[in-house]
Computed example of a mutant assay.
Amino acid sequence: MKDNDFIPYGHQSISKEDIAAVVDSLQAEYLTQGPIVGSFEKAIANQVNSKYAIAVNNATSALHIACLALDVKEGDCVWTSPNTFIASANCARYCGAEVDFVDIDPRTYNLSAEKLEEKLISAKRLNTLPKVVIPVHFAGQSCDMEAIHRLSQEYGFAVIEDASHAIGGQYQDHPIGDCRYSDICVFSFHPVKIITSAEGGMALTNNANIARLLRTYANQGITKDPQYLIQNVGDWYYEQHTLGFNYRMTEMQAALGLSQLSRLDQFIEKRHQQFKSYEKLLKDFPITLPYQAEDTHSSLHLYPILLPEHNKAARKGVFEVLRHAGIGTQVHYIPVHTQPYYQALGFQLGDFPVAEDYYSRTLSLPLFADLTSAQQERVALILKHALIANRVMSA
């Protein structure tokens, strides 16, 4: 198999305009802490109708400063989904907080609002309510944010939307990221995401004080804003008001992200076309295709399929056949609570059965802007061979 025959599960789409934008940034006066980052922040905020946007070096950093801005600390507890990348939980651990999980909806694979309510009722009796809940918009489809927001008002927790998969998506005909139902929303610009800045992330909010804290934590805990200085002895003067981090985004990253943003709608449209193509190609296969809730318009970061429950032991064989044939299938995700680090904190297999069952049967098929119809047909053909070879379907 030649390298160019390999079809990854996700891949960046880089245009001549993207390259030119990065070259221009390299020839500009500033390589970091220049004007392009601010332009990128403003463009993202305008795109999703949020008041404030703070760019950082990656989405993990954005999640970390989001927890810090909401004063997450030792003695607090943060709840999130077990069906996510580890960063959604680790961000709370960085702050010294405990972490717990809420099982997922069996159709959307998102954090279940119903399970959340059940857990909150129990936690209130035990006086163990969370300080923050981090719903994750898995594969680009929004969680039931209206229900989660209602619960946040009733039980007194803050909400961070982990929308790392979801820029360009919509919920109730509003853009994901407008923070209508959350305190902070986080995007990722990793190369396999909808748009990329090579690495990069963004934290969005409608709260001015939270925005100030986010920016301060991302910039070494330093401020030069005259209204917050204890003393002001000149334009050169700055003060460190807290222990912050160097999480800044570079001008080159911002230039790439800003250029990519101009094609966001095009990328989403292509992914939806590919989604429909997969539905036609795979409609007779004995697998569960991704479900889309009526009040969401997913950005379709991933295309996860599910093997039948009675064939879940075949998952490894199907995976290996696909990989051997050059199809870059992947598994999203290993439930966070099953990781050795979290097991050492007391979590066990069986704690979140819906997420564990989903994990045992899922595979993500290739889905990215430059995926061709011929490549999708090849994916479907090899998947059929893999399912037959592993006795999931008949020849």
Rank of each mutant, 00 (worst) to 15 (best):
Gly350Ile: 09
Val37His: 00
Ser197Lys: 01
His241Pro: 06
Leu367Lys: 01
Ala55Pro: 00
Tyr238Leu: 05
Ala389Glu: 14
Tyr30Ala: 14
Gly328Lys: 11
Lys16Asn: 12
Val159Tyr: 01
Leu306Met: 13
Asp144Lys: 13
His64Cys: 06
Gly168Cys: 03
Ile36Arg: 11
Asp370Glu: 14
Ile334Arg: 09
His241Arg: 13
Thr80Ile: 06
Thr329Gln: 04
Ile194Lys: 04
Asn390Arg: 01
Leu387Tyr: 03
Ser122Val: 14
His11Arg: 14
Ile167Cys: 07
Met145Gln: 10
Thr296Met: 11
Leu126Lys: 15
Val22Asn: 10
Ser298Met: 10
Ala208Cys: 04
Glu17Asn: 10
Arg378Ile: 02
Leu281His: 03
Ala139Arg: 09
Leu256Trp: 09
Ile305Arg: 01
Ala89Ser: 13
Ser13Lys: 12
Lys276Met: 09
Ala92Lys: 02
Ala369Met: 08
Tyr359Ala: 15
Gly96Tyr: 05
Gly38Ala: 09
Leu31Val: 08
Pro340Cys: 10
Tyr247Ser: 08
Phe267Lys: 14
Val78Glu: 13
Ala163Cys: 08
Tyr217Gln: 02
Ile268Met: 04
Arg271Cys: 06
Val321Asp: 11
Met252Trp: 00
Cys179His: 00
Gln274Val: 12
Gly201Pro: 10
Asn4His: 14
Ile7Phe: 08
His272Cys: 02
Arg150Met: 07
Gln47His: 11
Ser13Gln: 09
Lys119Gln: 14
Gln375Pro: 04
Gly168Ser: 08
Leu261Ala: 04
Ala59Lys: 10
Leu116Ile: 03
Leu281Cys: 05
Phe285Cys: 03
Val37Phe: 00
Asp18Lys: 04
Thr216Gly: 06
Gly244Tyr: 07
Pro308Ala: 02
Ile36Val: 15
Val354Lys: 13
Asp265Asn: 12
Gly346Arg: 12
Gln240His: 08
Phe6Leu: 15
Leu289Asn: 07
Tyr238Gly: 08
Gly221Thr: 03
Ile210His: 05
Gly38His: 11
Ile210Ser: 04
